[in-house]
């Protein structure tokens, strides 16, 4: 398979009121407004997956995927359940290694360096992840974020004075600070689901990552929390490269600059969000986004 050449970043076509192109395959939501109202001012290549295949034992979950991940853009991975999109996401910060049967072929680079040669803990500070279930640690709101900031392995743990600024900064980047500022000692598990998920995003941002991985971050949340988090993701796009796995096509349409459609482990189509939804190149993509299967 020839490596797919990513479209140049400047070719983004932005239409707030995009209309279906009339070939009949575009789903109804394509005319809906998108959150991404303006293209990012710049896009920087951060990660590159080259010919990545991942197998669990004999079963190949991801087949020969080549994909760029850029700061300044939101990349959404869509596809039916079991198509390998979460596996691909987890391989980007080597969480797949926790499954002993998983093996990876191909190469993933972060800023040009092969991630398989990096210390996994350092890599995971640069490429952090938010999960499907909101999973704050059973600590206070403050400690959830401070936990990430405290260096491990060194005797000298940063004191409260050094931590306070970064903790508040991370919480405010995740849009949670205003809601929790008056009681940072509040137990994190008593927050609402949407707040918990934003706390998880704050936690992931506290490490000052270059890439943020989101694995269906809104699937357990109500529509309002989803909206807050989608706004947040679009805002974060300029500072970190964002990769989001989602089942929700409309969500992908609303927030993604680029979309990768995966099916049975293959990356069937990769393209800008608007093109993908209004005029997909592949038959399978067209079928999936119009709801024929999935």
């Amino acid at each position: 398979m020839e490596p797919m050449s990513p479209p140049p970043a400047r070719q983004l076509v932005v239409g707030e009121h995009a209309s279906p192109n009339g070939n009949g395959s575009a789903p109804a939501f394509v005319s809906a407004p998108r959150r991404r109202v303006k293209p990012s001012q710049f896009a920087i290549d951060r990660m590159l997956a080259e010919n990545v295949s991942i197998s669990y034992g004999q079963k190949e979950a991801v087949k020969d995927v080549t994909l760029p991940i850029r700061q300044g853009e939101v990349l959404a991975l869509i596809g039916p359940s079991g198509c390998g999109k979460t596996t691909l996401l987890r391989s980007l910060n080597r969480l797949t290694e926790l499954t002993s049967s998983a093996s990876l072929r191909g190469q993933i680079t972060l800023d040009g360096a092969d991630i398989s040669l990096m210390d996994p803990t350092l890599l995971r500070r640069r490429v952090t992840m938010v999960f499907q279930q909101p999973n704050p640690f059973p600590l206070s709101v403050y400690d959830n974020v401070a936990y990430v900031l405290r260096e491990q392995g060194s005797r000298r743990r940063p004191g409260p004075r050094l931590l306070d600024g970064p903790v508040r900064d991370a919480l405010s980047r995740a849009g949670l600070l205003d809601e929790v500022a008056d009681n940072l000692k509040h137990p994190a598990l008593k927050l609402s689901g949407g707040q918990q998920q934003r706390l998880c995003i704050a936690r992931a941002l506290a490490a000052q990552p270059e890439v943020l991985l989101l694995d269906e971050p809104c699937s357990a949340l109500d529509p309002q929390s989803t909206q807050v988090i989608e706004d947040l993701i679009v805002k974060l796009r300029d500072d970190v490269a964002v990769v989001i796995v989602t089942h929700n096509l409309q969500q992908a349409y609303r927030i993604a600059d680029y979309v990768g459609f995966m099916y049975l482990g293959e990356l069937v189509e990769y393209g800008s969000g608007r093109t993908m939804f209004s005029s997909p190149r592949e038959q399978r993509t067209a079928e999936y986004i119009s709801g024929a299967f999935g």
């Binding site: 803990t121 995971r124 500070r125 952090t128 992840m129 999960f131 999973n135 990430v148 491990q152």
Partner: peptide, 18 residues
């Protein structure tokens, strides 16, 4: 303890011991 809690900690660059 759900597995995703361990992964959440590992996914922000913490060691197993931490």
């Amino acid at each position: 303890i759900p597995t995703h809690l361990r992964e959440a900690s590992l996914a922000v660059g913490k060691t197993r011991f931490a």
